[in-house]
Design a protein around this nucleic acid. Structure first.
Lengths: 109, 109
DNA sequence: CGATCACTTAAGCATATACTTGACAATTTA
DNA sequence: TAAATTGTCAAGTATATGCTTAAGTGATCG
């Protein structure tokens, strides 16, 4: 039952270990051990982070033989990016309206 | 002691109530009560969310008389947006390299 | 000056998150 | 087939998060 939400996406990105995993995966696919090695924690702990990223749809993985290979899913990155960009655009549009209002008001003096 | 981090920014944005607050603030400044009214929770609970947003640097507020007026801080939105955009760009650059590699490999046949 | 409004603080509770170590399973490799 | 590698599960602990109601503070209105 895949259900990707902004809640999970942003929550996943709020942890430095998980951002480090995403960062490494943007360089190319990697195994669980490779992803866990640079992290300051045990392997099971790293796997939990990986699970969070997968639940959020940011990462996909498949196991072949005894090694699980993980890849990043850029579509989910785009979705998070879009939400923030839209809010910022909305803010700027409103700032423009405020500017126009101030201009119009200035004309009245 | 202001310390804005991606950790806090993404964590703040991971909650629907807090995103609703940001959304409303992109339309213009608002008081605490105005922000809390549409949320399905008590006013103290809404204030906690507001505090999280302020700790993350996403929202600023100032109290004049008995009403506290809140505004959104787009710089922090930009920072979050930039992190995601950079990772996505990195992923695409690597995808290009993979394409080039495959092309080169194809030439060898 | 008493009532109301807007916000704030406090106490308490339930659930979720992040990590540990130790045991265990499945696959290569020697 | 024994040993090493790679990943997973389980139990336990500590801290953080999200919410409630009740009580309180300071500003403004009638």
């Amino acid at each position: 039952m895949l259900e990707y939400s902004l809640d999970k996406t942003f929550a996943a990105l709020s942890d430095p270990a998980r951002r480090a995993i995403v960062e490494q995966l943007t360089l190319g696919p990697a195994s669980v051990s490779e992803l866990a090695r640079p992290l300051p924690m045990s392997l099971p702990a790293a796997m939990l982070h990986l699970k969070v990223l997968e639940d959020a749809g940011l990462v996909s993985s498949a196991k072949v033989g005894r090694v699980r290979t993980c890849t990043v899913n850029p579509a989910m990155l785009s979705q998070a990016e879009a939400w923030v960009a839209d809010r910022r655009a909305m803010w700027e549009r409103n700032l423009d309206r405020l500017g126009a209002f101030l201009d119009a008001t200035a004309d009245e003096t």
